[in-house]
Every structure is written in structure tokens, then in C-alpha cells.
């Protein structure tokens, strides 16, 4: 994996809006942005209602994913270009799903909606009609998904990368303070996790920093690339952004996203939790 295979520029996107076999997909948790204007030809996926199971606390299973993509008119051999707001958080989450279920060719639009807007590129309100397909997904590739037991076993052994804001890491906040949202029972972080906020990896226009800058950021933070890595945040979307950087852009071979993230870990009974700005130790 590398920047060439995982990422497309806004210039490339604008030139390929009508290219056969290329499907643009806007992914957000609030699709009102799409409804107000989107990249011409793009379809939408709602992170909350399309990608999350509405009963179980999990995301859609293989059958549900197949049904979703079939209904939206995406084929197994389509090149899927994902983009969205919030610096591509939810698009990166969707990218991770597409990889998890084995889609062949999927890429992120560098900078997402923000870069598109700042460049004053065109929008459309037309909703394209795509013929339904018979999409076939693979079994989940668990080499890129971490579960809670994997995280507990990784303490002091593997790289744990907490990509939330420094205040959330330290336990001073459970979430950005202005948002009345689902929260973990306890504040803090997984002991021995390093703090590398997702935003370190992005330029202010939402594009990713250069590979060289990215490598410097993670090595300065103490990421040991000889070890496996698990990234987490609060609900798994900001950490998808970091998973994308480490696994897809920098090509680190073993990186997992812990989608349960702090809302799950911080509610577990009997697991160690560290407070403060330092990674802490297993004994914390």
C-alpha cells in the first residue's frame, strides 16, 4: 500500500468524475451536506444508518454490507473513491470497512469535502440513479480489526496509539466538551498508549501531510515500527484516519483499528486505565 494506490487528488477526481468504473461515494454521519450539494455523480452512504447495525452494537455484517453495496449500485470491480466532511474521518472509516470486506480498489479523496470547497470546485444536487448490482463481500479481514481483548493483551507489548485530543487522553475530558454524547464510564487511556492526535497527520486543508513528515511525527512520538500497532479513539472513526495513514500511506504491515475504542474500553470492568499526559505503565 502507498499513497499512489490509496489516495487520489482533487485534481484527479475532477478529471475523472465521469470515468467508467469509477464511483464517488460521500460518507458522513450527517448527510445533510450531501443533500445540499455534492461532488457531481457521487452517491451517499450514511455512516450511522447504513454502516452501523441498528440493533447490535456493531457495524453491518457481511450480508448487510453486500445488500448495501448491491442496492447502491457498486460492483466488485468498481474503483470506489470515498470522501466526506470532518477531514475525511467517516470516509476513512468507510475505507476501512471496504478493506475489511475485501473490496479490490478503493481510494480516499485527499482533503475530502473541505479541500473541494476551498478549491471552489463544482457541486451538484442531482442524485444519480445507479442500477443495482450483485455485490459479493469477503469474510472480514481481521488482520486490520482489533477487539478489546487484543487491546488488553497489547498493553506494554505492542504499539497502542491514542489519536484523541490530549485532554481526552489525559482523562480531563471524556469527549469534546460541547457534545452531549455517548461516553465511557471512565476517563483516561489504555496504559502504555502513546498520544498522537489524528490532526497531526493532516494539513489545515484536510489533505494528508507528506510521507516524510508523517514518519517523523510517529517516530518522534515513540512508535516502534518493529512492533504491531493498534490505533483507537473514542468511537473508531478518528482512529480509522490514523490507521489509513500508518497502514495505507506509510505501508506499515501490521496495523489494526480498534473500533470499540474508548467508549468500550472505558466501560470495561477490571481493565487497567492510565490518567495524565504520560503513557503510564501496566501497573497504573
Amino acid at each position: 500500500m502507498s499513497r499512489d494506490t490509496a489516495l487520489v487528488s482533487a485534481d484527479w477526481a475532477e478529471k475523472n468524475l465521469e470515468a467508467p468504473g469509477v464511483v464517488f461515494v460521500e460518507v458522513d454521519e450527517d448527510t445533510s451536506a450531501y443533500d445540499g450539494g455534492h461532488i457531481p455523480g457521487a452517491i451517499k452512504i450514511d455512516w450511522k444508518t447504513d454502516l452501523q447495525d441498528q440493533v447490535r452494537r456493531d457495524f453491518v455484517n457481511k450480508k448487510q454490507f453486500e445488500a448495501l453495496l448491491s442496492e447502491r449500485g457498486i460492483s466488485n470491480d468498481d474503483t470506489v473513491i470515498l470522501y466526506g466532511g470532518n477531514n475525511n474521518w467517516f470516509a476513512a472509516y468507510a475505507y476501512w470497512y471496504f478493506k475489511l470486506y475485501g473490496h479490490g480498489d478503493v481510494k480516499l479523496l485527499d482533503g475530502g469535502r473541505k479541500k473541494w470547497e476551498l478549491d471552489a470546485r463544482p457541486y451538484s444536487k442531482d442524485v444519480p440513479q445507479r442500477a443495482a448490482t450483485q455485490y459479493t463481500a469477503q469474510e472480514q479481514d481481521l488482520s486490520i480489526r482489533a477487539f478489546r481483548d487484543d487491546v488488553v493483551a497489547a498493553i506494554g507489548v505492542k504499539n497502542l496509539v491514542d489519536v484523541r485530543s490530549p485532554d481526552e487522553f489525559a482523562g480531563r475530558l471524556l469527549a469534546p466538551a460541547h457534545l452531549p454524547q455517548e461516553q465511557a464510564q471512565r476517563a483516561g487511556h489504555v496504559p502504555t498508549a502513546i498520544s498522537v492526535p489524528w490532526s497531526k497527520a493532516a494539513n489545515e486543508d484536510g489533505t494528508f501531510k507528506t510521507d516524510e513528515d508523517l514518519r517523523d511525527i510517529y517516530s518522534a512520538a515513540g512508535l516502534d515500527t518493529s512492533k504491531e500497532t493498534i490505533a483507537y479513539c473514542r468511537i473508531g472513526e478518528r482512529s480509522s484516519h490514523t490507521w489509513f495513514v500508518l497502514h495505507e500511506l506509510l505501508g506499515e504491515p501490521s496495523v489494526k483499528n480498534y473500533d470499540g475504542s474508548w467508549t468500550e474500553y472505558g466501560s470495561l470492568v477490571g481493565v487497567p486505565v492510565a490518567l495524565g499526559d504520560e503513557p503510564g505503565t501496566l501497573e497504573a
Binding site: 458522513d28 454521519e29 450527517d30 450511522k48 452501523q52 466532511g85 470532518n86 474521518w89 469527549a175 469534546p176 460541547h178 457534545l179 452531549p180 454524547q181 455517548e182 479513539c233 473514542r234 468511537i235 472513526e237 478518528r238 467508549t263
Partner: peptide, 10 residues
């Protein structure tokens, strides 16, 4: 308001 969101409100 959603219960699982990281995005900014309206």
C-alpha cells in the same frame, strides 16, 4: 442530536 458523534453540531 446523535448519541455517537464526533462531528460538530449544526
Amino acid at each position: 442530536m446523535s448519541v455517537t458523534t464526533c462531528a460538530a453540531p449544526d
